[in-house]
């Protein structure tokens, strides 16, 4: 028996919108820790890891560990039927091949339930080692989204370079080149507007902008984004989800052949 009641149902709606472009089908894993997902994109260069901790749910019952295979586009279709202020409850019985999403309006005058078929998904689970990153950049998520969008109109890849001076996003294409430098800026009115760079050593890596743009679909989840870089390691683009957890995107760097 599984019953997860999320008062801020809009968070789940936003999570689905953030990942459904990257991943078609995925297993949601439910355990005492929380509701989580790990899935790779079809070309195996990007990975999404989601955690919504059990403490973030108003009611969290998970009698035994359960893995539920879902088509994310179908799940998003159902969750779009929930109002932004609705409370969402996810329910499943042991051994069932369906999951139920229940939507309650804030004043309880409308209650809807949507039952979705589950699917068997053979997913690879990757062990992600803890890494020491050469540079960690925290910046406003909207700014990062704007940069990725702007650069993708010029080129296909972005070079992210971190130095003491700041973080530089560069691209090149048929029509020309573009460089955007964001300097460390801690003296702002609100902490979420700051750009903060923690650098052990300079790092410069190249990534496909198509994936970066896909990651920025998570922008509505968090006002800030954290980009962790190390030479020859996948970049981690992390959006914190309120007090509940995170959504992390890993992307392998491009290498010269």
């Amino acid at each position: 028996m599984l019953e997860l009641r999320l008062v801020q149902g809009s968070l789940l709606k936003k999570v689905l919108e953030a990942i459904r472009e990257l991943v078609n089908d995925a297993n949601f894993d439910c355990s005492a820790t929380g509701f989580s997902l790990q899935a790779m994109d079809s070309s195996h260069v990007a990975l999404v890891a989601l955690l919504l901790r059990s403490e973030g749910f108003e009611h969290y019952r998970c009698d035994r560990n359960l893995s539920m295979g879902m088509n994310l586009n179908n799940m998003a279709k159902m969750l779009r039927c929930a109002g932004n202020d609705d409370i969402i409850t996810i329910k499943a019985d042991d051994g069932s091949d369906t999951v139920t999403f229940m939507f309650e309006s804030p004043n309880q005058d409308k209650i809807a339930d949507f039952e979705m078929k589950l699917m068997d998904i053979d997913s690879e689970h990757l062990g992600i080692p803890d890494a020491e990153y050469h540079a960690i950049v925290r910046m406003p998520s909207a700014e990062f989204a704007r940069i990725c969008k702007d650069l993708s109109s010029i080129g296909d890849t972005v070079v992210i370079s971190v130095t003491k001076e700041g973080v530089k996003f560069s691209t090149a294409g048929d029509i020309g080149t573009a460089n955007i430098v964001c300097r460390q800026n801690k003296t702002v009115d609100k902490p979420e507007e700051a750009t903060v760079i923690e650098m052990q050593e300079p790092v410069s890596l190249t990534f496909a902008l198509r994936y970066m743009n896909s990651f920025t679909k998570a922008t509505p989840l968090s006002e800030t984004v954290t980009i962790s870089l190390s030479s020859e390691l996948p970049v981690v683009v992390e959006y914190k989800i309120a007090d509940m957890g995170y959504i992390r995107f890993y992307l392998a760097p491009k290498i010269e052949e």
């Binding site: 195996h44 990007a46 990757l126 996948p234 392998a252 760097p253 491009k254």
Partner: peptide, 14 residues
Amino acid sequence: TSKQQKLSSFFSHK
């Protein structure tokens, strides 16, 4: 030209 590395070359399979 440059190619994108596969994540499996960084992360181990569980």
